[in-house]
Design a protein around this nucleic acid. Structure first.
Length: 853
DNA sequence: CCGCTGGAAGCACCA
DNA sequence: TGTGGTGCTTCCAGC
């Protein structure tokens, strides 16, 4: 594919491209897409782009950043039948340079040769789904010959033979390996075997060709990103037309390449997309992130929208995949959407919820429980709101007449930076009861629901079209590079994003995350869950009465305050008194216990949790003990908060003290907070990229938020996301400095090489500040996802406990407390997600540094 | 018939 | 090594 001389890919793959990287499709499992050199693009002109480009997995010279398998696509001319391409993709005639896309190193999600989770994770590479790291090579093409050959068909006409060959060779041929491409769904289903073998080697049965006891048990056909073959032919080509049609190979390849080229990965070739859901995901292939700059000689349109690309740019005939169109295309998606840009921030990048006049807010929060459905189940409906109805999201401050697109994906709800949840995907709900149109796109292994935000609706959307799909842990944990574990990792957040094009060509990206949602049936029934707490902080002498609201409280529920050392060990633990008289299943009144040290000089953050018994604990909540002369901060009670009015003060908490599961925050910014214009992520031409900075900021915060705490409130207009932990500012943005949270020590480590280490290859130029502010959001997994290090996965048993103590320290806080460490092995399963991963994160950060150096 | 729900069985893992 | 608890996943029945 080439583009008009004056056309450019918004995608930052320009200069680094080297013709020498060109490989013929037939000989190499790599994708090469030839494009004309975008004249307007230079690495110096937009370093963010470079970073992005790097994040796409290619080296500075267009060479793969990693020794990874690549998919090389020749747009046309390489295949027997090029007429279609030529006619349908006229731009493909001007080939000036070649881009080689680096695909995920390793085998991707489900490595047939890797039957044990241990081996799977041990060889992890530098990517995680939807992360900017892997943005480019996150396609998770499993095109390694020894792996799922199924990727091949996506890009190669030779795929079919390859497939069969690999099939027989793959230990995991199975459904996973079955030639779905040539089958109809029915036949496909019939050939599926039962479940995939256990990641733990024998944990599960794996009866090929259908175990007798199982009726159709797809090997996670649908989703199992990576695993399957099904995942490859994701380009929405009907099964029966897939194989025989060479053009489709070619076309698919083009689409795949383009998808892969898109910065943010819209590149997931269907991996991770359940068959079921993929049926509605025709848009995947169409959701190209190509952006042609105005003035392109071949198009009067400034952009290629989904539709027109799918229908006219590519020879794809809609009827070919019409069967995937379960729902008629909403008119909204039939016209170009201005936001479309491949340079949009990766899903794991932390974005603010407001910028300038814009503010993205979740007006109605989802219920704290929503039982997700498995692929093998029917849908369990859309996520609902607490008071009935559905969540509502609104963009404030937008006065243009141009509709926007609201993006929704399922994010994590743990203590780390918000990122796409590996084990859950948003699921599109359709039907009579759904009033909101939506469609799906894939973004680096993460399904993203796109919902129109219309001016006539006051830029307000009722989210009644989004359910939550649960992926099998065994499927995901086998995915290469996946560090999270699924067990007990059942809380998610709905993450909303909107990208607003500015007159100056920039794009402002905002993000808002919902309160945590518990998605497991069992947990939802048994585990206590704290939705709100009436106080964020209190005196070291204790005695304050704190009201908690939530679910599954019991008369004998205990509330335990703990302080953890850096390695995660508890250094202090105290049970709070619970007022049993005021007990309700949804509320508790507790008396804050005195802190162990009455003479602290700066705030100390501790945690507490509700305990209903062994293994039935809530998530950790945070509480900050304040020095004697610091006024107590209490949260703003909700109007509907029915607990006793224990809070005398009604004062908005500083954002630094806000916590994830606390829906009740004052909409106003604290008096001490400056205008919350903390700069959204902005894209080309002059991209504003926020990234963590090693520079500690001068926020007046009292408590020190965990840097990884990205609660919705943190991202709310009144509070700055701790994710925005640092900035490199131009003079014009100095006023925003105070809006940035102090950078905890731990984060500062990663900040040294944020997108650089992660997204930029060695030798790349660091992002250069623009004339305006340059804020670079960190890919959260730079903290949360160790990769490429051969590190063992975060196993529950891992004694590694890293901790939060740096985070417990305010910038002005005293040095680490010298305390004895209390061993509490039983806590492991409670904390490993938090701590082990953090430990790995730190290791990973160092490794990134080394790699960069 | 299909989508949605609630409940629970069966299995695997772990203490 | 056996056993019970726990969590995950699938299945079923009802609306």
């Amino acid at each position: 594919i080439d583009f008009p001389p004056n056309a450019s890919l918004s995608l930052p793959l320009s200069s680094p491209c080297h013709p020498i990287q060109y490989h013929s499709l037939q000989t190499s499992p790599s994708i090469s897409v030839s494009i004309s050199q975008p004249p307007s693009f230079s690495p110096h002109e937009d370093m963010a782009s470079v970073a992005y480009y790097h994040s796409s997995g290619s080296g500075p010279n267009g060479a793969p950043a990693l020794e990874s398998p690549r998919i090389e696509i020749t747009a046309y001319g390489q295949f027997p039948d090029t007429e279609v391409e030529e006619s349908s993709v006229p731009v493909a005639k001007r080939v000036n340079s070649i881009v080689t896309l680096t695909l995920p190193s390793g085998e991707g999600y489900r490595d047939p040769t890797c039957l044990s989770p241990a081996s799977s994770v041990s060889s992890r590479s530098c990517h995680s789904e939807a992360s900017s790291y892997e943005s480019g090579y996150s396609c998770n093409y499993d095109n390694s010959p020894q792996n799922s050959p199924w990727q091949s068909p996506c890009v190669s006409p030779k795929g079919s033979s390859l497939m069969s060959g690999a099939l027989s060779a793959s230990p995991r041929h199975s459904p996973t390996g079955s030639p779905r491409a040539s089958m109809t769904d029915d036949s496909w289903a019939g050939s599926r075997s039962s479940r995939p073998s256990s990641p733990c080697g024998g944990k599960r049965k794996c009866s090929f060709n259908g175990g007798a006891s199982h009726k159709f048990r797809p090997c996670s056909p649908n989703l199992s990103p990576g695993l399957s073959p099904h995942t490859s032919p994701r380009l929405s080509v009907t099964d029966d037309t897939w194989l025989p049609n060479t053009n489709q190979y070619t076309n698919s390849a083009i689409v795949a390449a383009i998808n892969a080229l898109s910065t943010d990965g819209m590149s997931d070739l269907g991996e991770g997309i359940p068959l079921k859901t993929r049926k509605t995901s025709v848009d995947h292939s169409a959701s190209l992130s190509l952006k042609i700059e105005p003035g392109g000689e071949d198009t009067g349109s400034a952009e290629l929208c989904h539709e027109d690309y799918a229908t006219s740019r590519l020879p794809f005939k809609k009827e070919n995949y019409a069967s995937f169109l379960d729902v008629p295309q909403h008119p909204f998606w039939s016209k170009p959407k201005p936001y479309i840009s491949p340079s949009l921030p990766a899903l794991d990048w932390q974005l603010p919820s407001s910028s300038g006049p814009y503010s993205l807010q979740i007006e109605v929060q989802p219920k704290s429980h929503h039982r997700a459905h498995y692929e093998t189940e029917g849908s369990r409906g859309a996520v609902k709101a607490l008071a009935g109805g559905h969540p509502v999201v609104q963009l404030h401050g937008y006065v243009e007449s141009e509709p926007l697109t609201l993006q929704l994906f399922i994010g994590t709800a743990d203590d780390r930076l918000l990122r796409p949840h590996a084990f859950y995907q948003v699921h599109r709900i359709t039907g009579k009861t759904v009033s909101t149109p939506s469609h799906e796109v894939m973004q680096a292994n993460t399904k993203v629901l796109e919902i129109p935000l219309l001016p006539e609706s006051n830029m307000r959307a009722i989210i009644d079209c989004a359910g939550i799909l649960k992926l099998r842990n065994s499927d995901i944990e086998l995915r290469k590079g996946e560090t999270d574990i699924g067990r007990k990792n059942t809380r998610v957040r709905m993450v909303f994003r909107v990208h607003i094009n500015q007159p100056n060509g920039r794009t402002v990206s905002l993000q808002a995350a919902s309160n945590p949602i518990e998605c497991s049936q069992r947990s939802a029934q048994e585990l206590p869950l704290v939705d709100r707490q009436s106080m964020e902080s209190g005196s070291t002498s204790g005695g304050d009465r704190m009201a908690l609201s939530g679910h599954n409280f019991q008369p004998d529920s205990k509330v335990v305050f703990v302080e953890k050392a850096q390695d995660g060990h508890h250094i202090w633990e105290m049970e709070a008194k619970v007022d049993k008289d005021s007990f309700k299943p949804t509320s508790l009144l507790v008396e804050v216990p005195p802190y162990r040290n009455q003479r602290i000089s700066s705030p100390v953050q501790v945690n507490f949790y509700i305990c209903n018994g062994k293994r039935k604990r809530s998530q950790y909540q945070r509480f900050t003990y304040l020095p004697p002369n610091v006024p107590t901060i209490k949260t703003e009670p909700h109007d509907d908060y029915d607990l006793p009015p224990v809070c005398a003060q009604r004062r908005p908490p500083p954002p630094s003290l806000t916590l994830p599961p606390k829906p009740f925050y004052a909409p106003q910014a604290p008096p001490t907070m400056p205008t919350p214009d903390h700069r959204a992520y902005a894209t080309s031409p002059q991209r504003l990229v926020t990234r963590p900075s090693p520079l500690p900021c001068t926020s007046p915060s009292r408590g020190n938020p965990k840097v990884h705490d990205l609660s919705p409130t943190h991202l709310s207009p009144q509070g700055l996301s701790p994710g925005i932990t640092g900035i490199s500012l131009g003079p014009s943005t100095a006023p925003h400095v105070s809006a940035i949270q102090p950078t905890p020590a731990r984060y500062q480590q990663s900040v040294l090489y944020p997108p650089t280490g992660a997204s930029s290859p060695p030798g790349s130029h660091p992002p250069t500040p623009n004339s305006t502010a340059e804020l670079v959001f960190a890919p959260s997994h730079s903290l949360a996802r160790p990769a490429g290090t051969g590190q063992a996965p975060a196993l529950p048993k891992a004694p590694a406990r890293s901790g939060s103590s740096p985070l417990l320290q305010d910038e002005g806080a005293p040095a680490l407390l010298s305390v004895s460490i209390k061993q509490e092995p039983q806590e492991l399963d409670q904390i490993y997600l938090d701590d082990v991963n953090m430990e790995l994160n730190n290791i990973y950060i160092y490794i990134c540094v080394c790699v960069c150096v």
